[in-house]
Amino acid sequence: MREDHHDQPHAPDHPMTEFEWRVDAVQALLIEKGVITADEVRRAVEEMDARTPAQGARVVARAWVDPAFKARLLADAKATIAEIGITVGFDATIVAVENTEKVHHAVVCTLCSCYPRGLLGYPPDWYKSLNYRSRAVVEPRSVLSEFGLELRSDVEVRVLDSTADMRYLVIPVRPAGTEGMSEEELADLVTRDSMIGVAQARTPALR
């Protein structure tokens, strides 16, 4: 094994943490033993970096304009997402849940940071924080309020703690005043946070 890893382009500029050293060492060994190649690692990083919330926004916008698509999405998200040319990849199963005027879903992973990365890309830092992970299940309305989202008491708050193979995608409520907008314009209103359930979709006036 090489003694010095500073020649690696992926090495961070800051002093490496114990976990970074460990990942670095395992990767170097796997390459040295011919299990994987450096180019495969690079491609995997490139592919992951290419995934963004824009993919999820396309899915939500289609669900807003096409009730049959939405019904299929709620029944079998992974297969339905593939219909519009998005390959989620990874082994996890995507499950879509719908927010309405009466029900509001928000997603957390208390055990670690499970997130529909294959669809939305990397999770935001706050999603991985101990503060969000511990408080979102205990006092969700307070946490949502801190994000600027006040929900009426007649709205049922449903917090999803993704502890296993399911990766939840929230379909936010379609904002009022968006009748007649194109699917592409609608997708622009669908933010990452609205698909985690800590915010509503943007209204056209606030774009």
């Binding site: 708050v157 449903r158 999803l160 703690d161």
Partner: peptide
């Protein structure tokens, strides 16, 4: 939620959903 947390202050209709084997 009210069954999970004795001090839960939100409405009784609020729910926590979790994947369990």
């Amino acid at each position: 939620q009210s069954q999970l947390w004795p001090k839960y202050t939100g409405p009784a209709r609020d729910q926590l959903l979790m994947d369990i084997f």
